[in-house]
């Protein structure tokens, strides 16, 4: 019984360590369960595929486009609704979407920091900002 104080102190430290991610999330306003505030394109109502497909599989489509354009020289994409698009990240995707307010916000929210597309590919709006 003499060790009671140590046992409870140890337990308290353990519980604090276990729950620290939750406390950190509460303290840090950036991380929240609130969905990201995505800015959708103003000039276009329809994407190259239905929104659900894009949300779930845009990365697969981008890889496919990449293979088609670079390795087969096939740049023509016929969408589900018959519309024809150029297979291009910069021209087609970023022709409507804003990288900072769309791609980045959702990737940040989902904790997906992975894609290194932007090491080489350009965000036309960022380029325009940097060269006045």
């Amino acid at each position: 019984m003499r060790d009671r104080i140590w046992i409870f102190a140890g337990l308290a430290v353990f519980v604090a360590a276990l729950t620290c991610p939750a406390w950190d999330a509460l303290a840090n306003a950036k991380a929240s369960s609130k969905p990201p505030n995505l800015v959708l394109p103003a000039n276009e109502k329809e994407c190259v595929a239905p929104a659900g497909t894009m949300r779930a599989a845009h990365m697969k489509m981008l890889i496919q486009w990449r293979e088609d354009v670079v390795r087969s020289g096939d740049r023509r994409f016929v969408a589900f609704n018959g519309k024809v698009y150029e297979k291009s990240l910069t021209r087609t995707c970023l022709g409507c979407h804003n990288k900072q307010q769309f791609c980045d916000r959702c990737h940040e929210y989902s904790g997906v920091s992975g894609p290194y597309c932007w090491n080489c590919h350009n965000d036309p709006q960022a380029v325009a900002r940097s060269t006045p």
């Binding site: 020289g73 910069t90 290194y116 090491n119 080489c120 036309p124 325009a128 940097s130």
Partner: peptide, 26 residues
Amino acid sequence: ASINPDFPTRTKGVVEKCNFCEERLA
């Protein structure tokens, strides 16, 4: 000096050369 947004830049660690402007030929 001035980035052309229509063409990707490269990244550290890759090899590059003339591509006969295949993007323009297309």
